[in-house]
Each structure stands twice: as structure tokens, then as C-alpha cells.
């Protein structure tokens, strides 16, 4: 009899514990938010192969490829707290040639008003070195449009390719910026780190996430900033930058290419 009472007590306790512990995660209402990356060049829309643009060095160029990784997203709430998008759902590859990739959808976002976003351009070291089965989709090293260096294990964070008369004839007048490097260890001096963390406040706007309404935050991404940043990048002088110390200057430039545009409510 004593035992059965203990048992029933224990059972009730466990049941109570189950209800309490699951209460918060199950009941807290969530919604969705979309982030749209609108790729532009200065004041023009970015058009692959078509548009001709000019950088601050006075060089005309066209763009044939523009890809970049966005990861480790955090959203800032009205009250100053942050919602961290779960790691496993926080890696995106934005590709100019794939319009669908330019709008990313975040689900299971706690409802509320959001005032800003923070994200990383690139793929952090932890995920870069994770087991291969944890790197699928856009993180699949063999299937992500060449955004990986198989000879120097690591993701290419950003690719900008195009043509310019000032690029060497030996390269068919093409230029390449393949920027990566996650600051690997190698039992000594760290390798180059081109991960850049971007924080963008939504100015005086707020993105209101409700279970019934999913706002779209539109960001402008100005590829011209890759040339016209703190370092003035000249195609004639640097027509092919890949795993190179100079690439950190280009990363400093692309860290400034994102800006807030507007919020489209309930799209």
C-alpha cells in the first residue's frame, strides 16, 4: 500500500512536471518573418550580364555572378532582447541568379515587434568544420554552386564575378572575387578571417510578427560597396582575389553593403 501511494505520487509529479516543462515552448505563440535581399549596384538594379556599372576607380564592368552566405541570424525585439534563430535553420545562400534565394523565410519566431537584425556574412568556423552530414542544402560542399574550396577546406562566403575591359586579356577580361576564410587554427597563427557580422536597425520602423501576419523586411545590398568601401578596389589592379590577405579588405568593404530599405507588412 505504501509503495502504491508512492508510485501514484511519483506518477502525478511526473505528469505535472511534464505539463509545466513543456508549457512555455508549446504555448508561446510564434509567427514568420521574411528577409528580402534586394541586390543593387549603386542606384541601379543588379542585372546579371546586362547592366554596365562603374566603380569609384572609374572602371566599367558587368556582373555575371553574385552569391553570398547569410547565417547566424538574430532578431532584436522592441524591449531590447534578442531572438536567436536556431543554428540549424540559420544558413542561407543568396544567389542573384536564383530569385527565390533572395527572400529567406524564418519560422517559429516569437510574436512581437522587432526593431533590427544581426547576421553573419559567411559560414562560421564551427559549422565549417562540422561533420559532413550536418552540412546539407546550401552547405553541401559539393552541391552549392562552387561556394566551397575543396583544396583548402572552407566555404567561399561571397563570390562576385564579371567582365571589364580593364581585366586582363589573359583572363578573357573577366574578374573574380572569391572571398572566404573562417580564421582556422592550424596549431598556430590563425588564418584570415573574412566572417563579418552585420547589424541593421529598422530605423524607426518595427516588424510586427503575429501568428496571422508575416512581415517582410527588405534590405538593399549594394554590390558597388564591394569596390567603393574603405578600400577602393580596382579591377585593373586586383582582377582576381581569392584566398589572399588582400581579401580581408574586400570583406571590410562588403561588411558595408547592406542597408535597411523598408518593411512590407503581412506579405
Amino acid at each position: 500500500m505504501k509503495w502504491t501511494i508512492t508510485a501514484s505520487l511519483l506518477g502525478t509529479l511526473l505528469l505535472g512536471f511534464a505539463v509545466v516543462s513543456c508549457h512555455e515552448t508549446d504555448v508561446a505563440p510564434t509567427g514568420r518573418m521574411r528577409i528580402a535581399f534586394d541586390n543593387i549596384v549603386g542606384t541601379s538594379d543588379l542585372k546579371l550580364g546586362n547592366g554596365t556599372y562603374q566603380n569609384a576607380a572609374g572602371e566599367s564592368f558587368t556582373v555575371t555572378k553574385f552569391n553570398y552566405f547569410v547565417s547566424n541570424i538574430r532578431l532584436r525585439k522592441e524591449d531590447g532582447s534578442e531572438f536567436v534563430v536556431p543554428q540549424d535553420s540559420s544558413y542561407f545562400l543568396v544567389q542573384e541568379e536564383k530569385p527565390a534565394s533572395q527572400t529567406i523565410s524564418l519560422s517559429n519566431i516569437p510574436t512581437g515587434n522587432y526593431t533590427g537584425i544581426t547576421f553573419v556574412v559567411g559560414v562560421d568556423s564551427l559549422r565549417s568544420l562540422a561533420d559532413i552530414s550536418k552540412r546539407t542544402g546550401v552547405l553541401d560542399p559539393g552541391l552549392n554552386d562552387g561556394m566551397y574550396w575543396e583544396w583548402n577546406s572552407g566555404y567561399i562566403f561571397l563570390k562576385l564575378e564579371g567582365q571589364s575591359a580593364v581585366a586582363p586579356a589573359a583572363q578573357n577580361n573577366t574578374f573574380f572575387f572569391h572571398i572566404g576564410g573562417f580564421g582556422g587554427g592550424y596549431n598556430g597563427k590563425k588564418t584570415i578571417n573574412n566572417l563579418r557580422t552585420i547589424t541593421i536597425p529598422f530605423k524607426s520602423d518595427m516588424a510586427s510578427v503575429q501568428s496571422t501576419s508575416a512581415p517582410t523586411v527588405q534590405l538593399k545590398v549594394d554590390a558597388l560597396s564591394i569596390f567603393n568601401g574603405p578600400t577602393r578596389l580596382s579591377i585593373a589592379q586586383n582582377s582576381s582575389v581569392m584566398f589572399d590577405t588582400y581579401s580581408t579588405s574586400i570583406a571590410d568593404n562588403y561588411a558595408k553593403m547592406f542597408s535597411y530599405d523598408r518593411i512590407l507588412a503581412n506579405q
Partner: peptide, 29 residues
């Protein structure tokens, strides 16, 4: 019986684990 109580407890614990799992994000990889 006490053994059944133990079993019951395990079932609860299991249910707890399962219930809480479903609330989390699904691993895409």
C-alpha cells in the same frame, strides 16, 4: 505494483522527452 509504477514513470519520462522534442525546430540536416 511497484514494478508497474516504475514502468509508468518511464513512460511518463519518455512522453515528456517526446513531447518536448516536438516543440523544437526540426534539424534540416
Amino acid at each position: 505494483s511497484t514494478t508497474r509504477a516504475g514502468l509508468l514513470a518511464s513512460v511518463f519520462l519518455f512522453a515528456l522527452a517526446v513531447a518536448c522534442q516536438s516543440g523544437k525546430n526540426v534539424d534540416p540536416t
